[in-house]
Write a protein that binds this DNA or RNA. Structure first.
Lengths: 227, 227
DNA sequence: GTTTACAGGAATGTTGACAATCCTGCCGAC
DNA sequence: GTCGGCAGGATTGTCAACATTCCTGTAAAC
């Protein structure tokens, strides 16, 4: 929707810029552009975005309460580093939240939406993914997930899911390349979409939770390679 | 020493004061000391706490990301006012989160903890509550809830539950006084504690969720009196 | 009587400067 | 050679002042 500002230097936006900085920092952290433990220097960011340090600090504080950075007094803000145990904690919560989202989505939305996703997920699609184009799966899955959360129509739920997504995006991307993971994920996904298209909300919720647990199992099994 | 803002000797916490202000504001909002829609003036708070407006602003920003206040540009921060629909949205999420907490608590903690709670919840206890001492129920329930969340041992889950608790404390206190609510709640609670003491995690989770849905049903039924 | 324009005051938004703290490189003692 | 102290620079924390925006009361016009 709202295009990116190519030039942060012309400052007419007032308060809009601090949220732009916030979104940009979220992206950089999620995309691993700034690695865990990386420092976020206030002056640097202030200069880059053409705003004052005070406003940068505001964005940093917001990132802290979102759990993306850690602020040590007098030592600045660093990108938070997640222990494996914390990832499991996050996914324990994520499992029930995503399940709720799927259930509400099935209850609210037209089944045709899910049928369309199901048709898109055909043999040719699977062949292309399993032959190496994993980013295809990622794109497809993110699109589906976004549609589900949208259909769930619960802003509180959406905010919490956004938060956990930010915190775990990188690590789950690493899980995607593990042997057999996408195949397993696709099988789960088809069953999930079938249940959703058929309007079986309870079953869909359970399948979604199963899919998440399955991914976590793979993470546990291969944790030495992921970290 | 003769300054207007001579504070006690332990006042040099630096960053400690801003979190103290944050906690105090959280309390005032939760306790309805500042009503929904009430304004939070920066200068007033700065003077009361003997700190600068900049730090007050920091606390206000944190409250905003926690969803407790609403900040309108150039018009200041007001305590957020919840529509009934938003309360339902929050409780949709809260249901699955509290359920998860109970399940993990049963899995982690010693069953004796729940037996103790169960014994405390006897006929005499119920008589005193139903004869008007509703605050007894509230205290007891909050204690149990805190124990459960503690036992669940998941900081991410705890943070989210704290957040929803802050946002709904007042409205659920109003629900407590509705006809038959505490009686209904106590019955649910006993069954829940029995399941927990017996180590039936799945059943306990379902019972906890049932209890929350039941409270929400009462809220729906009497919504004209609650709002 | 109602509406509109406008000035005065009050509150918020933003900035640059100053103070406190921490990290780094260097130097001398043992 | 290693350890501890010690400036000097860099970075964060805090503040008061200035700029901007919004609200309010007053008065004139219709």
């Amino acid at each position: 929707m709202s295009g990116k500002t190519d030039r942060p230097e012309h400052a007419e936006g007032g308060r809009w810029e601090v949220s732009a900085l916030l979104a940009e920092l979220r992206r950089r952290i999620s995309e691993h552009e700034i690695p865990p433990g990386g420092k976020l220097k206030e002056q640097e960011l202030a200069q880059e975005f053409g705003i004052s340090r005070t406003r940068v600090r505001e964005a940093l504080a917001a990132l802290e309460t979102r759990g993306l950075v850690e602020r040590i007094p007098n030592r600045g803000a660093i990108v938070r580093r997640f222990e494996l145990g914390q990832v499991f904690e996050i996914y324990d919560v994520r499992e029930v939240l995503e399940g709720l989202a799927v259930r509400r989505a099935v209850e609210n939305a037209d089944p045709g939406v899910w049928t369309a996703f199901l048709e898109e997920c055909d043999a040719e699609f699977e062949r292309r993914i399993t032959s190496g184009q994993i980013e295809l799966y990622e794109t497809y899955f993110n699109r589906l997930r976004k549609t589900i959360i949208e259909a769930a129509a619960n802003p509180v739920l959406k905010a919490m899911l956004d938060s956990v997504q930010d915190q775990t995006q990188i690590i789950m991307r690493r899980v995607l390349v593990l042997p057999g993971r996408v195949e397993h994920g696709l099988t789960n996904l088809r069953r999930l979409l079938e249940a959703m298209a058929a309007g079986r909300a309870e079953e869909a919720e359970q399948l979604r939770r199963l899919g998440i647990r399955s991914a976590i199992e793979d993470l546990k099994r291969y944790q030495r390679f992921v970290l």
